[in-house]
Structures are given as C-alpha cells and as structure tokens.
C-alpha cells in the first residue's frame, strides 16, 4: 500500500485544472498499489483551503492547505521546501505533480531535496514491483521512451492534459500546515504575474487551436486567424517560429520544437508550410486542418483535411461557415 502526495497547483489563489489532474493521477497510482491514502497539498493566500476542499471529489483523502499572502504569486523556493517536508513526515511513497511551467519549478527540487528518483513529463505511470515504469516522450516527441525508476520516494510529473480529471469522491479531511521555509525569505521573488491571453483559453487548455504562419504576410492579417478563433468560440491562437521571429506574435504563442507542445481536438494550420520543427509541437493533435496555396507543402502530409488555396479567400469563407454552423 502506497501513500501518495499530490501537488495541486493554484494561480492567483484559484485551483488550476492541473491540480485536478495531479489528484486524479495520484488516486489512480494509490489504488493500483493497494489503495493507500492520497494527500493533496495546496498553496495560496488566505481562503485557498476552502477552495481546495473540492479536491476530495477527485479522490483526495486529506487536503493540506498552506496559506500565506506571498503565495498569490509563485514561490518555488518555499513551496518545494514545504512539499519535501510533508513528503518526509508523511512517509509518502510517491510525490505526484504535473509538468506545467510551475510544476517544473517544483518537482525537480523536491526530488533533489529528498534524494528521490524522478520521472518527468510522463504520459502514464505503472507500479512494477518496487519500481515505477513510465512512458515519456523524448527527442521532441519523435520517440516514446519507456523508463523504469527505482527507489522510495519517487517523484513523478505527468504531462499536462495526459490525465483526465475523474471524480472519485472521498470525504476529505482538511488539514493546515505552516510553510517549512518562510516565503518572506525566498531569494527568488516574483514581482508580477501578468495575464497574457486576452479573453481566450491558453494553448495548453484550448480544445481548438487556430495557428498562423508566414503565409499571412503581415502582422495585421492575423485578424483573419483571430476571427476564425472567435467563430469557434473556444479556440486559442498559435503561431510558427517564422511569425514569432517577425514579432507578429509573442514567443509564448509559438508552437513547435522550441515553443509549446499542444494536442487539441482540432488544429487549423493557416499559411504554415509544416516544417519538421513545427510538426514536433502539434503532431499529436486529434484532427488537423491545413490551408496552404502550395499543394506540395509538407503540412498536407499530416493534415486530415487539406484545402489547397489562398488563405485570404479560404479563411474568411470558413469563418462565415463556422458562424453559420454554430448558430444552428
């Protein structure tokens, strides 16, 4: 029987979707190893304990809230010290998180503090005797590795979105804990966290992504992409490196090997050639649409639905058609 500690992320005092993913994954791991307890640990300003109570719905037996004003912003130094402390005092066999940007700040440090084995960014994890066997994409997602980690405790992060939050209600006990390291003494200080997606879902969470390439010719023409995203309603906007290099869009919108990796339900590539480095970031999308005037463009090799044509003609027509379909 293995007790599992799940790190449930918050941003600005609100639980993130990754928090539900971490608790769900922890529950599955605990159940697969004989039904140990899942303890979820949450950091945030005063009031976060009340919001975290819902983690019981996803299978947490204990919800540990660590409240401090400084936790409105990310504070990896104090948070990782506190998780390591709790993992030690609770004798946890596994520490589970999600490999989001902030999860990547925390988990490796917790592993180093505990001297624990570490598996990063896994698609799935299964206990195998004393070891944990995980599947993890490497080489820019072009190779799937099966890795075996041994030793207790083991720290593991799941790829964001790899686990679907599942309800498994427990009547969770609430506990509170003081930070194991004073946040006021943290050397790295987040001065400001600014929201960068204006009224749109983030690339990591959007079910639909409309992505633009150099075929759009200039920054202003990105409004074609935005209008198509608006027509779908729940879509995010992405870009190629050619576009972020030109400064038409911020680097945070870049999809590919040196940008973000995404797997939406639908990916629409507008004026994108389909370079190997771009495909590395979106090849696991469920359905891919490509609109490009060059029928030889490599993007058509992986597009489920290709249209050969001028983006300035096809995209506005598609936007109108989607609006119409939505209004029915």
């Amino acid at each position: 029987m293995a007790n599992v500690l799940a790190y449930a992320e918050t941003r600005a005092g609100e639980l993130r979707k990754t928090a539900l993913e971490a608790v769900t994954a922890a529950r599955q791991l605990a159940d697969a190893t004989g039904g140990g307890e899942v303890h979820a640990i949450v950091f945030g300003p005063a009031g976060v304990a009340a919001k975290a109570a819902q983690l019981g719905q996803y299978g947490a037996d204990v919800v540990v809230a660590v409240e401090h004003d400084r936790y409105t912003n990310n504070d990896p130094e104090s948070i990782s010290a506190t998780i390591a402390e709790r993992a030690k005092s609770g004798g946890h066999r596994y520490v589970v998180g999600v490999a989001s940007q902030t999860g990547r700040d925390i988990a490796p440090r917790v592993a180093a503090k505990l001297g624990a084995a570490f598996a990063s960014d896994v698609l799935e994890a299964k206990a195998d005797g004393d070891a944990l066997v995980v599947r993890h994409p490497g080489y820019w997602g072009k190779v799937i590795m099966t890795l075996k980690v041994t030793g207790s405790p083991t720290v593991v992060t799941y790829r964001a979105g790899a686990v679907t939050p599942a309800e498994n209600a427990k009547s969770a006990r609430a506990e509170s804990m003081a930070p194991a390291a004073d946040p006021a003494a943290s050397r790295v200080v987040v001065k400001e966290t600014t929201q960068s997606t204006k009224g749109r879902p983030d690339l990591a969470e959007a079910p639909i992504i409309i992505s633009g390439g150099r075929g759009l010719k200039e920054a202003g023409n990105f409004k074609l992409v935005e209008e198509l995203a608006d027509a779908f309603g729940n879509a995010a906007v992405g870009a190629t490196r050619a576009v972020t290099d030109e400064g038409w869009r911020p680097h945070s919108d870049q999809i590919g090997q040196t940008g973000r990796t995404v797997s939406p339900q639908l990916y629409v590539a507008v004026g994108i050639s389909g370079a190997i480095q771009h495909i590395a970031g979106m090849r696991t999308s469920r359905a891919i649409v490509a609109i490009n005037k060059d029928k030889e463009a490599p993007i058509f090799k992986i597009a489920d639905y290709g249209i050969v044509g001028d983006v300035f003609e096809v995209v506005p027509a598609l936007t109108e058609a989607v609006k119409k379909a939505k209004s029915h």
Binding site: R11, R187, V190, K191, T193, T197
Partner: peptide, 13 residues
C-alpha cells in the same frame, strides 16, 4: 518567463 497564459517578472540575487 512565460507561464501557460501568463508571464512573470522576477528578481533574484
């Protein structure tokens, strides 16, 4: 640094 849907400004020694 960029987070998902946000950005942080950070100071450190």
């Amino acid at each position: 640094r960029d987070l998902e849907g946000a950005a942080e400004s950070i100071e450190f020694p």
